[in-house]
């Protein structure tokens, strides 16, 4: 289990380097990229914030997109609260590390004691590597200069594609929602200010939910 936690940490390291580089390419400073990784600590939402800013959207539209994506962590918390049984200050600490990876590792265990160990071990591994990797990626991208000449503007949508890919395999109408979401966002981008079209795509998920 501890080896699994370390393995997940290594994969997260690669992902964190990408985040740091993409954040700097989007116009964030190195401290801003690092602050997001330490304080927000939820990859997809962080990518969403910098993605909206990179597209020229207002930071507040970026916040809204990030929070919509972050709402899935609320459901993870619901599943984890029975397993972890944390109170007081420990709950405040545990909440910070309720993310995809820690939830997946904790719910895969058979006993509550093992779940708790898996949760905290994964949290420690992912948190340390995610923040270290963000710093390396951000500082590296800062050092190499013009992000567009280096193709870093393609890294942002490629990262989103990488995050989206496993969700498409899940079925249950997810491909139809993806196609509709992308189409709505691209077409409305021609007439609406940057950042707003991505939020409109959220409505697609809510509308199509009833039919699939």
């Amino acid at each position: 289990m501890l080896r699994n936690a370390a393995g997940i940490g290594a994969a997260v390291g690669a992902y964190g380097i990408s985040f740091g580089a993409v954040a700097v390419a989007a116009g964030l400073s190195v401290p801003q990229a690092c602050a997001l990784s330490a304080l927000a600590f939820t990859g997809a939402s962080q990518f969403a914030f910098v993605g909206v800013v990179a597209a020229g959207g207002s930071p507040l539209a970026g916040v809204a997109t990030a929070l919509l994506l972050g709402s899935r962590n609320t459901l993870y918390g619901l599943r984890l609260s029975r397993l972890l049984n944390v109170r007081g200050a420990r709950r405040l600490l545990a909440a910070h590390v309720v993310i995809d990876e820690t939830t997946a590792m904790a719910v895969a265990r058979t006993s509550p004691a093992e779940s708790r160990l898996a949760f905290w071990a994964t949290a420690a591994s992912v948190f340390s590597l995610w923040n270290l990797a963000t710093l390396l990626g951000a500082a590296g991208a800062r050092a190499v200069g013009d992000p567009r000449a280096l193709g870093l503007d393609a890294a942002v949508p490629a990262a989103f594609l990488g995050l989206l890919w496993p969700r498409l395999a899940a079925g249950g109408g997810s491909r139809a929602v993806a196609v509709a979401g992308a189409a709505v966002a691209v077409l409305t981008s021609l007439i609406l200010p940057a950042g707003v079209p991505v939020l409109l795509a959220a409505l697609v998920a809510i509308r199509l939910r009833e039919r699939t």
């Binding site: 919509l68 594609l161 997810s174 929602v177 979401g181 021609l190 007439i191 940057a194």
Partner: peptide
């Protein structure tokens, strides 16, 4: 169901806009 589909719609939208849109042009 909404929590499952919301990331799909948002990530797909971010892929689409980030790939094809510059300013307000395709």
């Amino acid at each position: 169901r909404t929590a499952e589909l919301l990331p799909v719609a948002l990530l797909a939208a971010l892929v689409g806009v980030g790939t094809l849109v510059t300013g307000s042009h395709l």
